[in-house]
Amino acid sequence: MNDALQDFIHYMIVEKGLAQNTIVAYERDLKGYIQYIQKVEQVVSWQEVKRSHIVAFLHHLKMQNKSSKTLARHIASVRSFHQFMLREHIAEHDPSVHIETPQAERKLPKVLSVAEVEGLLQAPDNTPFGIRDKAMLELLYATGLRVSELIQLDLADVHITMGFVRCVGKGNKERIIPLGRLATEAISTYIERGRASLVGKYTTNALFLNHQGNRLTRQGFWKILKKLAQKANIQKDLTPHTLRHSFATHLLENGADLRAVQEMLGHADISTTQIYTHVSKVRLKDVYKQFHPRA
């Protein structure tokens, strides 16, 4: 049964061209699914899989307190897998066809205030590592890049004189995002003074490097962010995505066009971007309640 999974993963990589993180998520979800139906439901071939087996698997996930978002993702993985097997004649039926997707909870993203962003941007010191950290934070807040996009940047992707950065996002879609003056200055300083110290004797095209002179990882950035948030005395639960959320919210609060923000964030569907308008409304209500004498 695992052979079909490997065929599916190969199809997703070669024909669909999905991002590495998406492939990893599909593979992880489907390995769990296969393990469950084999060990718990005693299924030995794809011809035996029934709708009840999938429902039992989803119930198993629910009993583990998985969120509706996680359940929806698993259903999407299982459905795509069974559709692939039917299409490739690995299986003769698709038991996932009538499985309903649960309504995902739409949680408002946590954002920083402008003052908190300023505090975070001032937290890095003047060492080569601090200069790198400052450049990364300025770039994230100036562009709304995902952290996965940030760490994949090469030197050639940042055009200082033209004032833009080129990145490849989800689905291998390329987008061009303008850079502000402060972000441009921070990146220039890092390339001239910080990166040269970090790269040492190594040769690499990666823009942001760790202490070994290699490309910085997501985990490495996460540790840096937690340390800087503590130094800036930010009490909120900060994640690498928080600056992306703050970028979008602050743009919309200052009158930016929703379509332009969608383009910069690289959202395929504008409904994904619209959640930031809800964040703005919530913040407006909070300000009203705090400052209006009759609130």
Results as ranks from 00 to 15, higher is better:
Y36A: 05
Q152E: 15
G171T: 06
L18S: 04
L265K: 03
A19R: 12
L18W: 08
A229N: 11
K289G: 15
R193A: 07
A156I: 11
K50M: 07
G255Y: 07
N214Y: 10
H278T: 05
V279S: 12
Y36V: 02
H278Q: 14
E116G: 09
R181D: 14
S45D: 15
I176R: 00
G32P: 02
V78K: 01
F84S: 09
G171P: 03
T161C: 02
G194T: 06
R132G: 12
Y141G: 10
H82P: 07
N126H: 10
Q83Y: 08
F221Q: 04
D257M: 01
T242R: 05
L198Q: 07
N254F: 03
K31Y: 08
A183D: 04
L198I: 11
H93W: 08
I270T: 06
A156S: 12
Q6T: 08
V147K: 07
F291C: 12
V168Q: 11
F208R: 04
Q42D: 11
V282E: 15
H60Y: 07
H292R: 01
A295C: 08
M264K: 04
I34V: 11
T101N: 05
Y26W: 10
Y190S: 07
L258P: 13
P128K: 10
L243R: 10
A76T: 12
K173F: 07
D125N: 14
L155F: 12
F81V: 00
S80D: 02
E149M: 06
N210D: 09
R195D: 05
